[in-house]
């Protein structure tokens, strides 16, 4: 059986995505796989908010600046988590529609496993609540691992030598 060689974890600043990153670090270590962490600055959503007049132009720029800082901070944090376990990762941030950026990177880097945080446990039938990670999960061409149970994952990460 072949094992994953290239793993991608999507980081968005939520605790769920950090838990996913810890799990991805464990997997990359077990399988000696390359690990890439991706943060997408959701410029598409910000453009929509500007069009809907929920955002002012200067507010959009402020949020974009904040998200650039978030991207750096969270990717650095995941990098630190990996370094603690002797792993070197690739950090990437991009701009656009989250699920499209994930799909593009999966294809461009020939990723064979996408790791994402736990999805909403509430399944609304309204399309408006179809979140970006879930959309990516349904449309990427590779296998997807949805990480759950923060405490167990933390234990697994901590026990990793």
């Amino acid at each position: 059986m072949s094992t994953p060689k290239k793993i991608l974890v999507h980081v968005d600043g939520t605790e769920r995505s950090i838990t996913a990153a810890q799990y991805a670090i464990c997997l990359a270590s077990f399988y000696h796989a390359d690990l890439t962490a991706l943060y997408v600055i959701n410029t598409r959503a910000m453009e929509d908010l500007l069009k809907a007049r929920i955002f002012l132009k200067d507010e959009q720029m402020e949020y974009e600046h904040d998200m650039e800082a978030d991207a750096e901070r969270y990717l650095n944090y995941v990098d630190e988590l990996a370094v603690k376990k002797g792993l070197s990762i690739t950090k990437k941030s991009s701009r656009g529609s989250v699920h499209k950026e994930i799909i593009d990177l999966v294809k461009a880097d020939d990723i064979d496993l996408l790791v994402i945080g736990e999805l909403s446990r509430i399944r609304s039938r309204r399309d408006e609540f179809y979140d970006e990670a879930e959309r990516a999960m349904r449309t990427v061409p590779c296998s997807v691992l949805v990480v759950k149970d923060e405490d167990k994952v933390w234990e697994m990460y901590e026990s990793l030598v």
Binding site: G13, A45, L49, A52, I54, Y63, M67, D70, V98, E132
Partner: peptide, 24 residues
């Protein structure tokens, strides 16, 4: 919180989409 702009923006975008449905 100031350090979670990503989830904030996505939630606002969901509300914007909801607002487009007059019937809803």
């Amino acid at each position: 919180p100031p350090d979670q702009s990503g989830p904030h923006v996505e939630a606002l975008a969901e509300i914007a989409k909801l607002g487009q449905s007059r019937a809803f």
